[in-house]
Simulated scan of single mutants.
Amino acid sequence: MKQVKAMTVRLSEDQAQALEMLASVENRPVSDVIRSAITTHIETRRRDPKFQAGLKDRISQARKLLDR
């Protein structure tokens, strides 16, 4: 079984109400809706060439720091 990490997220009152309403309409726990949204966001970024270029740049910068 995969490890689970608890995290705290601060939302505006409007965001919290909208999230709770969405979860209620979908008859799902709020945490499931949040996890699904995060998964979708991560997958979208993985397919985004601009994000990938930025990620490669960060990796390159980190390697330069380690090679010093």
Rank of each mutant, 00 (worst) to 15 (best):
M1C: 01
M1I: 10
K2G: 10
Q3A: 12
Q3S: 07
Q3T: 02
V4D: 11
V4W: 14
K5R: 11
A6K: 14
A6H: 15
T8G: 04
T8K: 03
T8P: 01
R10M: 06
L11C: 03
L11N: 06
L11I: 04
L11F: 05
S12I: 00
E13Y: 02
E13P: 08
D14L: 10
D14Q: 05
D14P: 00
D14F: 00
Q15V: 07
A16I: 03
Q17W: 04
Q17A: 13
A18N: 06
A18T: 08
L19K: 02
L19W: 07
E20G: 08
M21D: 15
L22F: 08
A23H: 05
A23I: 02
A23Y: 09
A23L: 07
S24A: 14
V25E: 09
V25I: 15
E26Y: 05
E26V: 03
N27K: 13
N27D: 13
R28G: 06
R28L: 12
P29M: 10
S31C: 13
S31H: 11
D32Y: 15
D32K: 14
I34K: 09
I34H: 12
R35M: 04
R35Y: 08
R35E: 14
R35L: 14
S36A: 13
A37E: 12
I38M: 12
T39C: 13
T39H: 15
T39V: 11
T40D: 15
T40A: 15
H41K: 06
I42M: 03
I42Q: 05
I42N: 10
E43L: 11
T44I: 03
T44A: 07
R45V: 00
R46I: 00
R46D: 07
R46N: 09
R46C: 03
D48R: 01
K50D: 14
K50P: 03
K50E: 13
F51T: 00
G54L: 04
K56D: 13
R58Y: 10
R58G: 11
I59S: 05
S60M: 08
S60R: 02
Q61S: 10
Q61C: 01
Q61M: 06
A62W: 12
L65A: 01
L65S: 05
L66F: 05
D67H: 01
R68L: 08
